[in-house]
Structure formats: C-alpha cells, structure tokens
Design a protein around this nucleic acid. Structure first.
Lengths: 341, 341
DNA sequence: TTGTATGCGTTATCAT
DNA sequence: ATGATAACGCATACAA
C-alpha cells in the first residue's frame, strides 16, 4: 500500500523544488534545468516508480492528448480497418484513442460527443453512415458545434456533415465507375441490394450505380432494387428475396462487401453458382474478404489511410472553414464478375 | 469565444453554492438536495451548456471511469470481435474505453500499460498472444504489478499471465477436440500450419492437435508441420510450402481462421480444390469468415463474450488472488472437411 | 438541507 | 537556473 507517489515526493527525494521536478520530467517549454539536477530528479522518479497523473496534467495544461473515435460497430471490418488507421496515426503523434461504439443506435453519436467533450478530447472523429434523419442530424450538429466552440476539433470520416471537416468517400462516383466496368463486361440486367431506406451511403452507392446504367441504356428496373439491412444478413435476405422474385438478373450489386458475401451465400444456398450463373459485386474491398471464392469484384477504398487523414485534418486547422477531402474508390474486378459473352 | 463554463458559473447562475451545484448535478452519495433547487441548477447548467470536466472529476474523486484495452491489431477480426464485446460491456457500466494497438511490436504492451496507468485507468485488459519471451514477459509483469499496486485491476484475455486474472482460452483442448473430430471423419494424414515459433497460442493449438492425433495412432510427421506467420499471408505461404513439399496430405489444420483462409487461397491457386482434394480446418470461427466457400471447419470461440467477462473479472475483486476463468471452444464442422471415404 | 473551505497533482507565473 | 505559489475544476469533510 505505497499510496500514490506524486511529483512532490519525487521532488523531496531528489532534494529539489516541485517546480524543478516538473521541469526536469516533462522538459517544459523553456528547457532550463541543469543536467545534474535533471538526472537526480529522473533517478528519484525511477526509484519511486513515479507515474505522472495525466488527469492532473490535463487540468493544469488545459488540454489532453486524447482523441475520440466514434463508430457504429468495431467488429465490422469496415470500421475496424478505419480504427486501425486511427490508432496507428494517433500513436505516432503521442495521442491516445478512446473508442466509442454506437451499436447502430440513433442518438448515441450525440451522446458520445458529449462524453468526449467532458473528457476534453482534443479531437473527435466520427466514422460511418448516418441516416437521412433531419432531427438526429441537427442534434448531432448542435453537439458538435458546442464542442468546437469549446475548443475541440472535429473530422468526419466517410460522410460529410454540413459545417465540419470531412474525409468524404465518393460513393456515387465509385458506384458509377463500377457500373461502367460492369456494363463494359457485358452485363445488361443488373439488380441492386440497396441497403435500408434513408441510409445515405447506401443511397449514394445505389444511385450512382443505377443512374449510370440508365445513362448507358441498360436501366435497372424497380423490381430489381431490393431494400435490405446494411449487413451480411441483409445481403443474404436481399438476395433470397431477389431470387424469389424469379426475375431475370445477370449481375447483383450489393452496396457493401459484407452484404455481397451474404448475397453470395444466399445464391449458393439457392443452387446458383456465383461467377457462372450470376455475377456479384460489392463495395469497400474489405481485406479480410479478399480471399472469398470466387474473388469479389468491388470498389476499393483506402480505409486504413482514412484514419491518418482524418486526424491530420482535425488537428490541422483551428480554421473555422470546414474542409472536405474527397477520397475516390477504385474498381477492382475479380472472378465474381467474369466477362460476359 | 465563451470560454469554458465551469460549475461555479452554473452555481452563480442558479443562485446556489458550488457544493449544491455539484450535488445537484452528479447526485452525490447522500442525495440531499431539494427538488426545487436541483431543477434550478439543472436548468442553469442546460442554459449555459455546462459540460463537466472529467479530468477534474477524476482528480477530485481519485478515480476515473476509463478502462484500457490493449490488442495487437484492431483490424484483425479476432481482436475486433473482442473489442466489440469490451466496448459494449463498458458502455453498459458507464465506462469509457481507451484502445491501444501494439502493432505486434514487442515491448509496446508494457509501454501502453504505463500510459494507461498515467491515465489512472480503472482497469487494463490485455488481449492476445504473447511470445515465449521471458524478458519481455517479466517486464510486462512488473509494469502490471506496479499498476495493480497503485490500485488498478487487470485482466488478460486469451492467454494467462502468471499472477493476474485471466479469461483463458483452452487452446489445447479445443485443438484436441478438433483432432478427434477429424480423425472420426476419416482423416489420417494431417498437416499443420503451425504459426511462428515461440507464439504460445499457436504452440498450444499445434500441440493439442498433434498430440491427440498421435494418441489416436495417426501421428503427424514433422515434415507436415510448417512454421509460418500467424496471419493470412502466413497461411498462404505455409500452404504453398506444404504443397511444394509434395507430401501426401489429406487435411491441413491452420492454427487460426485467417491463416486457414490464406491456406485455402493457396490451395486454389495450386489447383487443389478444398473440400475435395484437400480438407482445411481453422480455429476461432471468425464471424466475417463464416461465409467463405466451402464453409470452414473450425473451433468456435465466444469472442464477443470475452470482453464482458474480462471487465467483470477485472472489476469484480480487488481480491489479490488472481482468478483464471477457462473458456472452451466448440468444434464446428463445415464443408471444408467432408467425411472421408 | 445548504454553504464554506480544503485538497486532488500538475503546470505556469512570477520572483529570486 | 531555481524556488515559492497561484491557478485548473471539481468533490467532499465539516460547519452551520
């Protein structure tokens, strides 16, 4: 039961004043402490197993070295890839990451913003799709504005929020590029597993895809657009329903990879061979899924780079002008969408 | 530029003392504040957009509501599944999670323990395999001991560390059960993609598997045991090497699912059909990989439950006796290992 | 029930 | 270059 050893203890042990001990240990701005004393202090600190109290430091300094990351579900590879980038970049900068997961519950983002503001986090990063929910968005915006007004910085990842800096994923253009590729491969009767209504990312991907195919003269009929959850199970059920409609489809675009994998499973379960009877494409290029068979055609996103970019963006400017950095996807064609006769 | 609004501001605005404001807002132990006043304080706080300073609270209270989670790589689905469980459970308890990723660098765990001790985290959870590295383990043990001595609690996830409470995964028995299942299905010439030398989890799984098959009279020859990285690429390379040796193998056990998926890819690339020419089994039952085709036989671990158990274990007892909770895996047979003959 | 006063551990200001 | 001391924002022991 040593009790907490404080800087005062270290100072006493080293025979110096509290102020000197502080300067010796953190090397304060005006680094002015005789090497001899500094060593004595450091030695004393080591001897006593001194551990600086980050909370006290935060209070005295008026700032922390914490950054907050809010995601929907850290088990989702999309978010965990982003989180990996964030933690790596934060580490590089000597920052610590607090992770909050909303579990897809609306309103939780706002709640976490408030918690993180209480921690006096230096920056808050929010990843992942919000719904088209004016009220919720307004509330979130207000919380974030309050946080920014109190000196914090904010960056969104994946989807812009009016008034805040964002690493924006160009979902629409990525899906459009995918559509052109698929059209080029000869597909003419596409279907879309479109995600849930109101989900902005899902909507952008769907629209980019559908619009482009329409422009190319091979429109996607409404009967080929199936709403479903933005998850593996959503993809599975969506595909089941689509196949149940017994419509004549040669290509299914699931608006993310996890859904696409679910869709592939459903196709298999229905006796349709993906890449032969039916083509499937996704979006994201989740690393963990690169070995599914047949290889999944998708739109690659540099998920691991997003985290670093977001931190940089957030910490860069106290500038009041929100910056939007666009990130484009790249179509990756694999065996799930072979050239069609 | 409102400047930070403090509890004093709220108190003044509400026309009460600082103490009353404090009690009204956090509902202190002896909840004794007239409803009328409480309302006035809350109203004032809302009006002023008061946000309590968690750092100041931490200092005044002498404890935080932070728990630290240390993993190797949050993008690895094994760890992200665990992290999901941890964040969910923490949330339930009103705790906040600080996430640290070692990026597989030795010594980083210890470094993060020290950082988390500085934050005065209530508990530290460490997930994932350490190497058989006496020096590193000793250093980590020492840091953790210091943390515990200063009032923190610790729980390990997945692998015991002498002296600390652990949610231990019974890798050996899980691998043994898998071996028995495979033997029962008729496999007689197994190989193992064994992970890197010195990796304790890998070693336990390999030994449990190899030992059991030996006991059953179908030993795994040394030439069928391939060391490789504990990753997807490790599995891929390991399988390539194994097939290159041109040995006569009917089943390949990769010591985790991610490796198994890499191995399946290598088999395909070599023109061998998994589930027909060659069987493959893994370990973990990673959710994201449940739809690979053919379905991967594996040992299911309740990864998402581990987090909650670990928090419970850590926060439960200030008890000085380290508790070890054993978690067993369950063999899940899928199409990658069809009955043989 | 409410108010007053002290302390939490550190940094930073101001002397020296 | 070093030392005293005042904040930092809050919780709580004690007094009223």
């Amino acid at each position: 039961m040593a009790g907490p050893v404080t800087l005062s203890d270290v100072a006493r042990e080293a025979g110096v004043s509290l102020a000197t001990a502080s300067r010796a240990i953190n090397g304060s701005a005006n680094r002015t402490v005789r090497p001899e004393l500094r060593e004595r202090v450091l030695a004393a600190a080591a001897r006593l197993h001194y551990s600086p109290d980050a909370n006290a430091q935060a209070m005295a300094r008026g700032r922390t070295s914490t950054i907050g990351l809010i995601v929907h579900d850290i088990a989702d590879p999309y978010f965990s890839s982003i989180a990996a980038g964030v933690t790596a970049a934060a580490d590089e900068l000597g920052l610590v990451v607090t992770l909050a997961t909303t579990q897809h519950q609306r309103g939780r983002e706002q709640q976490f913003v408030e918690i993180l503001q209480s921690q006096r986090a230096r920056a808050i990063l929010i990843a992942g799709g919000r719904y088209d929910d004016p009220e919720g968005t307004a509330a979130l915006t207000e919380s974030l504005a309050g946080y920014v007004a109190s000196g914090g910085s904010v960056a969104l990842i994946g989807q812009a929020l009016e008034g805040f800096s964002t690493i924006a994923i160009n979902n629409r253009s990525g899906a459009a590029a995918l559509a052109r590729s698929m059209h080029g491969l000869g597909y003419r009767r596409a279907a879309v597993l479109a995600g849930p209504e109101g989900h902005i990312t899902a909507r952008d991907r769907r629209e980019g895809f559908v619009q482009t195919l329409a422009d190319l003269g091979t429109p996607v009929p409404d009967a080929h657009i199936v709403d479903c959850a933005f998850t593996r199970d959503g993809g599975y059920e969506g595909m089941r329903e689509l196949l149940g409609r017994d419509t004549d489809v040669d290509l299914v675009f699931a608006v993310n990879d996890v859904m696409a994998v679910g869709a592939m499973a459903a196709a298999r379960d229905a006796g349709r061979e993906v890449g032969v009877d039916l083509a499937v494409a996704g979006f994201d290029d989740i690393v963990t899924l690169r070995d599914v068979s047949p290889g999944l055609t998708t739109v690659r996103l540099p998920l691991d780079e997003l985290g670093a970019k977001a931190i940089e963006l957030a910490l860069a400017g106290p500038g009041p002008e929100a910056t939007v950095v666009d990130v484009d996807g790249e179509v990756v064609v694999r065996a799930s969408t072979p050239p069609r006769a």
